[in-house]
């Protein structure tokens, strides 16, 4: 449902989420350390070349950049005005490269695999008193709550409409807040009643 994943069988799809996330973090930091236009251009071309390797189309790569075009345009204009054409081109190309790199990871990794490896990776927090299983539960609960919240808001909005209060933000927001907190208390009682001991 809430997943940008694009199915495939390429090497990048089969690679574990851990190495991909690490590579992305190192690559992103590297681009900020070596700030020169040729390196940014080379990185951009190299990352764009990985899209066909992962079996992704040019259309998918473009879809990652397109929503940000106007941001690029304004960055470019501001930078051109403040520090010249070279810096402007550099800032925009570096940003585009970073976004393509991050999207590549997201497009080739299932969200559920990401969550599993995140829960696993959080094992190092165990000595500090954090429990990865509890973090896993909170992740699953949060994802389940999103559609429930949308539904509760819809119900409250309809109820307030019959009272002629559809224009009041508070008349919707307050009952939604109180109902969801009541729901959270009920759910935590239900979890405890079933003997949840992670």
């Amino acid at each position: 449902m809430l997943d940008l994943y694009s199915p495939g069988t390429s090497y990048l799809h089969r690679l574990g989420p851990g190495p991909k996330i690490l590579t992305m973090m190192l690559g992103g930091t590297g681009l900020f350390l070596f700030d020169s236009l040729p390196i940014a251009c080379a990185a951009f071309i190299a990352i764009a070349a990985l899209y066909p390797v992962a079996g992704l189309t040019a259309k998918q790569a473009w879809a990652q950049i397109r929503p940000l075009l106007w941001i690029f345009a304004i960055f470019f204009a501001l930078q051109w005005w403040l520090s010249g054409l070279t810096t402007a081109a550099f800032v925009v190309i570096r940003l585009a490269a970073l976004i393509l790199l991050a999207s590549l990871v997201t497009l080739t990794t299932r969200a559920s695999d990401m969550i599993d490896s995140l829960t696993h990776a959080l094992g190092f927090l165990r000595p500090f008193g954090a429990n990865p299983a509890k973090i896993g539960l909170s992740i699953s609960l949060a994802l389940r709550f999103i559609p429930v919240l949308a539904q509760i808001t819809q119900e409250v909005r309809e109820a307030q409409k019959t009272r002629g209060l559809e224009r009041s933000v508070i008349a919707t927001a307050l009952p939604v807040a109180i109902r969801t907190i009541k729901m959270a208390d009920d759910i935590s009682d239900a979890i405890e009643a079933r003997g949840y001991r992670p």
Binding site: I74, L137, S138, I139, S140, A142, M183, I187
Partner: peptide, 30 residues
Amino acid sequence: TKSIVYIALFAALTAALGLMPPISFAGLAL
């Protein structure tokens, strides 16, 4: 357990508020 559920709830609430369309004004991209 109650804290876990509350943490999940407020993370979800913030996500649900994202369903409202954002106001992006082209003059001040950011």
